[in-house]
């Protein structure tokens, strides 16, 4: 990661299963409004207007980037490098039977590996289960 040393950069990662209340948990914990939330999208430089940026449903964004032939690993890394302060929310999608279709396997695997990388860089990693956040890093 290339840090601009003048600005304190911070990224938190929040993961968990479907419908576990991850977004609500984040909004409540950090006292944030919905207008800082980007749903399955990453803002570009001129769209980064709020002090803190919440990216929700990162897995859906990964899926659409893979379908469009993009490289989500590089794109998310570049977003994290540019962003001052962000919270990334992503579903855990790897805890099921191996899918029959090759694309579905690729999507699961690459999302998982991306989360490992993001977790490595994150200041804090929380896993939300039944609306409750467990700090795992």
């Amino acid at each position: 990661m290339y840090h601009n040393m003048d600005v304190e950069r911070k990224m938190n990662l929040v993961i968990g299963g479907y419908a576990q209340g991850k977004l609500q948990y984040v909004l409540q914990k950090y006292q944030l409004e919905e207008n800082v939330v980007w749903d399955a999208a990453l803002p570009d430089e001129k769209e980064m207007l709020s002090e803190i940026i919440v990216v929700n449903h990162l897995h859906q964004w990964v899926r659409s980037r893979l379908l469009d032939g993009g490289c989500p690993e590089e794109e998310v890394q570049s977003f994290v490098n540019r962003c001052g302060n962000c919270i990334i929310i992503c579903d855990e999608i790897g805890n099921g039977i191996v899918p029959m279709e090759a694309f579905e396997r690729k999507y699961r695997e690459r999302t998982g590996r991306m989360l490992i990388q993001l977790a490595r860089e994150a200041e804090e990693v929380e896993r939300v289960i039944c609306g409750i956040g467990q700090k795992i890093k």
């Binding site: 999608i93 790897g94 099921g96 191996v98 695997e109 690459r110 999302t111 998982g112 490992i116």
Partner: peptide
């Protein structure tokens, strides 16, 4: 234990 791509 772990899921797919979990780093297990």
């Amino acid at each position: 234990i772990g899921g797919s791509g979990s780093g297990k």
